[in-house]
Design a protein around this nucleic acid. Structure first.
Length: 186
DNA sequence: GCACCGATTTGCT
DNA sequence: GCAAATCGGTGCG
């Protein structure tokens, strides 16, 4: 299993977010195919990096290809992959392919579709925590897939920017995409 | 110093 | 469909 190199991530976040759909994320014996992502840039009002580097978001300004982990609503730990400085991609959902038992135990449920279909769920299933912030990740190339794009979920600023990407028709998405939002093939 | 809010999930009405 | 859980960052006085 060959991991994508830091150079691969050293690009603008929307491009990386699109290309990440269909790749395979592995972390400590569990993981699967990435089926949903969101891009955040430094000039994006919805991004944690919008106001510059701070204590929480310093990893977003670190080396590309590493993890940026943040706490959401004081409860969940969410995983991002750092792109070029100040930009990152939120991993929103994966299709579980290995370590199913491990992830089911962490989640307290076994239905594959409910294991990693959301940023908080995915973080819990993979055992993500603050100790992972700034750490290395292994993401491997996967089979090309049809990618669909649409507006990002759960944000209150820049709500119309279509920087949410997903595998068309995947049953493992956090939420379905609106019909024909826009289509990208690769 | 303090009140408000969020890149969420879950359970109950 | 709606509110609770829970806490660090942000904005204002």
């Amino acid at each position: 299993m060959t991991c994508l190199t830091p150079d691969w991530f050293d690009r603008d976040a929307p491009a990386v977010a699109r290309d990440l759909v269909g790749t395979v994320l592995s972390l400590r014996g569990a993981g699967g195919r990435i089926v949903e992502t969101e891009a955040y840039t430094q000039t994006d009002p919805a991004s944690h990096s919008f106001r510059g580097p701070g204590l929480r978001n310093r990893s977003m300004f670190g080396p590309p290809g590493r993890a940026y982990v943040y706490r959401s609503y004081g409860i969940h730990w969410c995983l991002n992959v750092v792109c070029r400085s100040g930009e990152a991609v939120l991993i929103r959902a994966i299709e579980p392919t290995h370590g199913l038992g491990l992830m089911a135990a962490r989640r307290g449920m076994s239905a594959p579709r409910a294991l990693c279909s959301g940023p908080g769920k995915l973080g819990q299933a993979l055992g993500i925590g603050p100790e992972d912030d700034g750490g290395d990740l292994c993401i491997a190339a996967g089979a090309p897939s049809a990618v669909i794009a649409g507006p990002r979920i759960g944000i209150t600023r820049a709500v119309d920017v279509p920087w949410r990407f997903g595998e068309d028709g995947s049953p493992f998405l956090s939420r379905p995409f609106r019909e024909h939002s826009s289509l990208t093939a690769r």
